[in-house]
């Protein structure tokens, strides 16, 4: 699976972190400790967990109301901040669920990137790549 160290190798990466569905920060790597600290990552993890849940609710509702498909299950949520962006993914968890491994779900993964160098598609590829399969 994508590792925190691999995520930190993405263009413009400033920090990588993993967290539970409840938002609890489990582990992290910080490339710029003068700009990012674990407290910020913990708050960010809670914020991202909340927004992944809301996006999942909206995706299910949208697909029911419109009969359109393609949003559920939500694979990633991205916050585009003023100078930084955060990409988080729970796809690896979905793969575990679909393979019946619900008792040992892996954590959500996230990466903080500087906007001016951020490559969102590279972040998705790393977070969602086949190497992330259980």
């Amino acid at each position: 699976m994508a590792t925190l160290d691999a995520l930190l190798g993405l263009p413009g990466a400033m920090a990588a972190f993993e967290f539970r569905g409840s938002g609890e920060l489990l582990d992290h790597r910080i490339a710029y400790p003068d700009r990012i600290n674990p407290t910020l990552l913990d708050l960010l993890a809670h914020m991202c967990a909340a927004n992944l849940s809301i996006a999942t609710l909206q995706a299910r509702g949208w697909e029911q109301l419109t009969a359109m498909r393609g949003f559920y299950p939500v694979q990633a949520f991205t916050l585009i901040g003023f100078d930084w962006s955060v990409v988080v993914s729970g796809l690896n968890r979905e793969r575990h669920k679909q393979s019946g491994q619900v008792s040992s779900l892996p954590p959500f993964l996230g990466v903080v990137m500087a906007n001016e160098r951020a490559d969102y598609e590279a972040a998705f590829a790393l977070l969602e790549g086949p190497e992330a399969l259980p």
Binding site: I36, A59, V74, Q75, A76, I80
Partner: peptide, 13 residues
């Protein structure tokens, strides 16, 4: 932090 104020967001299915 560099995150505020947010400029936008993305949800990928």
């Amino acid at each position: 932090s560099g995150l505020h104020p947010p400029r936008g967001w993305v949800v990928r299915g």
